[in-house]
């Protein structure tokens, strides 16, 4: 009996060591100050005022500074950019300087985040870039939470997608006698992935606000990725609740698989809708923010440790569910035997 059960002990040790290594790396190796190199943007953290400085061009002086919100979204077509604030500059001063007070042109409070700065001369856009001190002073120690935050977010997304795909496989294969066992295994893994996905979505939703408070000035903002994480984790929680109440017989499996299958395209649409709605999430990975070997080393150690740990947890949960079902079946057999006597 003992030999049939796979032992996860080595994986557990490896995952534990990995997590310790990740914590050490984040503490010692990762830089204490993360400099975001983004020459034509500023990171406004919700403070009252931010100074924006730039070189003044003598032959073609700059007369206006445009602050553009939702910079990522309107990158493709510069003509579509929304000007949050157009700040006039006196062309006579040799060094240009304007102050941003966190209000949009309509007088609403602008949301904290990354703003693109555009300098304009009387003839049109200027080639000059603004130099802004705010860019370099934003991320202090708080940036270190990023190594766990991003890794957990990756695990969460992979669990979600994996759960949906395995559920599709279950629904397609379950009636086929030859693949019946395979389908049930897929469903066990999908269930475990949903559980671990919810756990890691909590990690993401807790570490995110801890980072956001010092950097954005608020714990929570109605921002695309936050919304996507929150809504998809609700879907997952729905999956788990359904699974708990419907039980692990065939109908319970089918229903929860249905939720997961609907969830994947739904998550895609939530993503699209909230992106269109507007956003300012720091795009560290896709925006080329991983500079320096220290950062990328720490990042890869942390992400591999989290992945290892998550896969250990998933395999543990799969085994637990299997054993639960086996125990239930044994109970049924037992009561049948008792009935016969």
């Amino acid at each position: 009996m003992k030999s049939q059960r796979p032992s996860f002990f080595p994986v557990a040790v490896l995952a534990g060591l990995g997590l310790v290594a990740a914590i050490i790396a984040v503490y010692w190796l990762a830089p204490n100050r993360l400099v975001q190199v983004h020459p034509s943007s500023m990171h406004w953290n919700g403070a009252d005022f931010v100074d924006i400085e730039f070189e003044q061009n003598e032959t073609n002086p700059i007369v206006q500074v445009d602050l553009l919100e939702k910079s990522e979204m309107y990158k493709k077509n510069p003509a579509d950019r929304i000007v949050t604030r157009a700040l006039p500059v006196s062309p006579n001063t040799p060094a240009g300087k304007v102050q941003f007070n966190g209000l949009s042109d309509k007088g609403h409070a602008a949301s904290p985040g990354v703003y693109t700065i555009h300098l304009k001369t009387a003839q049109g856009p200027s080639d000059l870039k603004a130099k802004n001190k705010a860019v370099e002073t934003v991320m202090g120690y708080s940036s270190k939470i990023f190594y766990f935050h991003v890794g957990s977010a990756m695990v969460f997304l992979i669990c979600f997608i994996g759960c949906a795909l395995l559920s599709v496989a279950y629904l397609l294969l379950r009636r086929n006698k030859a693949y019946r066992m395979m389908a049930i295994n897929a469903d066990y893994i999908a269930y475990a992935m949903a559980e671990i996905g919810v756990v890691f979505s909590f990690v993401v939703l807790i570490t995110g606000p801890i980072w956001a408070k010092p950097n954005w000035g608020v714990f929570w903002t109605w921002e695309p990725r936050l919304l996507l994480t929150l809504l998809t984790s609700f879907l997952f929680i729905g999956y788990l609740v359904l699974r708990n109440y419907a039980g692990s017989d065939d109908s319970g499996r089918r229903m929860s698989a249905g939720v997961a299958v609907i969830g994947l395209p739904a998550a895609y649409f939530i993503h699209m809708a909230v992106e269109l709605w507007g956003g300012n999430h720091p795009k560290v990975l896709t925006g080329g923010g991983l500079h320096g070997s220290d950062i990328s080393t720490t990042f890869s150690i942390a992400v591999s440790a989290i992945f290892l740990y998550a896969s250990y947890l998933i395999s543990l949960r799969v085994r637990t569910h299997r054993l639960q079902d086996a125990v239930e079946e044994l109970f049924l057999d037992l009561s049948e035997l008792e009935d016969r006597q």
Binding site: T232, G238, L242, M255, A273
Partner: peptide
């Protein structure tokens, strides 16, 4: 239909339906 026979149907239905239709709501 899926929850027709589930206990807690009244609670489960919004929990699952609202996140899925949230893009429709936003749009």
């Amino acid at each position: 239909a899926m929850f027709a026979n589930a206990r807690l149907k009244d609670v489960l239905l919004p929990v699952v339906v609202y996140p899925v239709v949230s893009p429709v709501l936003i749009a």
